[in-house]
Amino acid sequence: YHADPAALSLAASANHPRVGVVKRPLVAIIATGDELLPPGSELGPDQIISSNAYGVAAAAQSVGARALDLGIAADRKEAIAALVRQAVAAGADVIVTLGGASVGDHDLIHDVLTGEGMTLGFWKIAMRPGKPLMFGRLGDIRCIGLPGNPVASLVCSQLFLKPLLARLGGRNHRQDIRPARLGAAIPANDLRQDYVRAMVREDDGALVATPFGIQDSSMLRMLADANGLIVRAPFASAAAAGEACSVLMLR
């Protein structure tokens, strides 16, 4: 329960000099990658702007958490480990890493976190976008390894990070999933649960969700334009415009 001004006045009027509270959880955010530079930088060959941390921090703050951006770690185990130790020293309740959780030569997060003492809970899930998601515990600290692709990072934040932080902060958090009908045909799905970026509008008292034609997990503009995600179960059949669907509202 979030104590608003009226609730605080009510507690005082009932002669309660103190009330129990839950500490706002602290999430430490670590971006990884030699190719990343902060906004405002002049890009060279094979370099990109580091953007995921800002969206993840905003997602955390939207459910009452505090966000600590620890910056960018190079693709070296010692550089990543140093920021993990900073997060622990800062008293983080949750450590979020961005990128480096897949299986490439520069995907070092698993080795670093387990080397620091993390017990792995799971690694890789059957969803799109967001397959490389990782979760574990480093003592009392929850560790979430988010994918490096911007869309996958933010979709996973919506589905996993926000509910976790809300619970740690003593809040209720429910995903806003509503019935709708498709505004355009959609192909059959494979073995992964799919979260399809869509524009949702109201038509004659019902919601209509129209998927964007491009669903690549690097296309952040499509997620910025979307106000919902069509939820597609594994092995769902192809569906025509007008058929029923479920949509997770983003805003």
Rank of each mutant, 00 (worst) to 15 (best):
43 L>I: 03
69 D>C: 05
74 A>K: 13
80 I>E: 10
89 A>V: 07
83 L>M: 13
27 V>Y: 01
62 S>C: 07
61 Q>T: 09
94 V>I: 11
50 S>Y: 01
65 A>C: 12
24 R>L: 06
35 E>D: 05
85 R>K: 15
64 G>Q: 11
60 A>Q: 03
37 L>S: 10
63 V>S: 05
89 A>K: 15
72 I>F: 03
67 A>I: 12
69 D>R: 00
63 V>P: 10
45 P>W: 07
91 G>N: 07
40 G>A: 07
98 L>P: 06
52 N>V: 06
82 A>W: 10
39 P>K: 00
72 I>L: 10
92 A>G: 03
72 I>G: 05
24 R>Y: 00
79 A>D: 15
23 K>F: 08
70 L>Q: 01
90 A>Q: 06
85 R>A: 15
39 P>N: 09
65 A>Q: 12
89 A>Y: 12
98 L>N: 12
63 V>A: 06
89 A>P: 09
41 S>T: 03
88 V>H: 01
82 A>H: 07
56 V>F: 10
84 V>F: 13
37 L>I: 02
86 Q>C: 07
20 G>I: 12
43 L>D: 02
64 G>M: 11
67 A>P: 09
61 Q>N: 14
57 A>I: 07
58 A>S: 13
58 A>W: 07
21 V>T: 14
69 D>A: 04
89 A>W: 02
66 R>N: 15
98 L>M: 13
32 T>S: 10
27 V>R: 01
27 V>M: 09
65 A>M: 11
48 I>C: 09
72 I>K: 04
51 S>M: 14
71 G>F: 02
74 A>R: 14
83 L>R: 15
66 R>D: 15
88 V>N: 02
93 D>A: 04
35 E>R: 01
19 V>K: 08
26 L>C: 02
35 E>M: 02
52 N>W: 00
98 L>Y: 11
40 G>N: 04
47 Q>M: 12
92 A>M: 06
25 P>L: 08
50 S>T: 02
97 T>A: 02
87 A>I: 04
31 A>N: 15
43 L>V: 05
58 A>T: 13
42 E>Q: 06
54 Y>F: 15
57 A>D: 07
97 T>R: 10
32 T>M: 08
20 G>C: 11
92 A>P: 00
51 S>G: 12
75 D>C: 14
30 I>S: 08
55 G>P: 06
29 I>M: 06
24 R>T: 10
27 V>D: 03
69 D>L: 11
22 V>W: 02
36 L>P: 04
48 I>R: 04
70 L>M: 05
75 D>G: 15
50 S>I: 01
22 V>E: 10
72 I>T: 03
53 A>Q: 14
59 A>V: 06
49 I>Y: 03
75 D>V: 12
52 N>K: 00
90 A>K: 08
53 A>D: 12
20 G>A: 15
88 V>P: 05
67 A>W: 00
77 K>E: 14
22 V>I: 13
77 K>H: 14
69 D>N: 13
70 L>K: 01
58 A>Y: 03
52 N>L: 00
84 V>A: 15
82 A>I: 11
32 T>F: 10
31 A>L: 12
25 P>I: 09
79 A>W: 00
84 V>K: 09
18 R>C: 09
76 R>D: 14
27 V>E: 08
62 S>M: 13
44 G>D: 01
95 I>D: 01
68 L>E: 10
26 L>Y: 02
64 G>H: 11
19 V>A: 14
32 T>A: 11
34 D>F: 03
46 D>F: 14
37 L>P: 05
63 V>Y: 08
74 A>W: 00
57 A>P: 02
28 A>Y: 06
